[in-house]
């Protein structure tokens, strides 16, 4: 078992919370982890990414090599395209369809989806809408984690335990919202896999 995962988004969107949950679950499963993240200037609204590697054998590099990512999990549609050179031929792209527009010349979302579809068969997730249904738009990153869960090599129950561990200090209500959000993403993903 070895998974190379690229988490993509914009500084401040919460990809490190996604990473923290996966890290927790992987550690719980006794796996080896390497997770490179971006700190510093780019965190101020710039493009950010995290290379996350989990394996049952020794890992050396903190960075994922080109063409070897099993999963690109993007919480922003444009950002999902930025890391395509890292994607393995059989790799998956799971992306939110909610654009974060803070630059001039941001392309229309339809063009982004078209470009994405011409390269891969992406799983598109209306993350914010599902998160609202779960109780809070702020939980959209957990919707995304749920949608990507089947491609992480980790059991959903273990990831949910990770969500509990991460959000536990903020109280049960927050934990429950995030678990509901996670399950909404997971349900969408499972439905998509059975239909395609």
């Amino acid at each position: 078992m070895e998974k190379n995962i690229i988490l993509a988004g914009v500084g401040g969107q919460g990809i490190l919370s996604i990473a923290a949950v996966i890290d927790w679950a992987a550690l719980d499963a006794g796996l080896v982890i390497r997770q490179a993240e971006v700190h510093g200037m780019s965190q101020r609204g710039g493009a950010v990414q995290s290379h996350l590697r989990i394996s049952d054998r020794e890992l050396f590099a903190d960075l994922i090599a080109h063409g070897t990512a099993d999963l690109i999990l993007s919480v922003e549609p444009l950002e999902s395209l930025r890391y395509l050179p890292w994607l393995a031929p059989e790799g998956h792209v799971v992306t939110s369809t909610d654009p974060f527009v803070n630059v001039q010349g941001y392309p229309p979302v339809e063009r982004i989806i078209k470009a994405l579809r011409s390269a891969v068969q992406p799983l598109l997730v209306p993350a914010e809408q599902l998160a609202r249904e779960a109780g809070s738009a702020r939980a959209s990153n957990m919707v995304m984690l749920g949608a990507a869960a089947p491609f992480t090599g980790l059991e959903p129950e273990r990831l949910e335990a990770g969500i509990e561990a991460l959000f536990g200090a903020k109280g049960w209500e927050i934990v429950e919202i995030n678990i509901r959000a996670f399950r909404k993403g997971l349900t969408l993903s499972n439905a998509n896999q059975t239909t395609s």
Binding site: G45, A65, G67, T68, L78, P85, P107, S118
Partner: peptide, 30 residues
């Protein structure tokens, strides 16, 4: 990166998908 070192060691680079042209830079901001 692993890719740079692999190429220096004589390995053939993997074929990869290019970044589509519509992708613009997203620099940090206040």
């Amino acid at each position: 990166t692993t890719d740079l070192v692999a190429s220096a060691l004589g390995a053939t680079p993997a074929e990869t998908t290019a970044v589509p042209e519509i992708v613009i830079n997203r620099p940090p901001e206040l």
